[in-house]
């Protein structure tokens, strides 16, 4: 079970949290104006990086705030957590093959 640093509550066990997928993937401003392919990409496709990944979590059994996490999806190493709207921490990004 991961130990997740909620930016509001501090480090808590993973079972207090829920996962929300890729971060920094804003909803298109005017969906009507974009192509089917771009929309499908937004709705259905996530980067799913093997390596450093920017992702959203919600502290659902805690402060109920959504926040972002930088996590290595292979090693589960957590490089930092930051609030919505904040800039991500500087991370030495890695990807694995």
């Amino acid at each position: 079970m991961l130990l997740i640093p909620c930016p509001y509550c501090g480090e808590r066990a993973e079972n207090e949290f829920s996962y929300g997928g890729e971060a920094h993937k804003p909803r298109p401003e005017v969906p009507e104006e974009i192509s089917d392919a771009t929309w499908a990409d937004y709705v259905f496709l996530q980067k799913n990086t093997k390596g450093t990944y920017y992702e959203r979590w919600i502290h659902s059994h805690g402060c109920r705030r959504w926040f972002n996490l930088v996590r290595d999806t292979l090693t589960h190493e957590i490089h930092g957590a930051y609030r919505m709207g904040e800039a991500p921490p500087k991370v030495d990004e890695k990807t694995y093959v």
Partner: peptide, 9 residues
């Protein structure tokens, strides 16, 4: 705030 037992906030 936390999770108590299974699934209970």
């Amino acid at each position: 705030q936390t999770v108590f037992g299974r699934h209970c906030g």
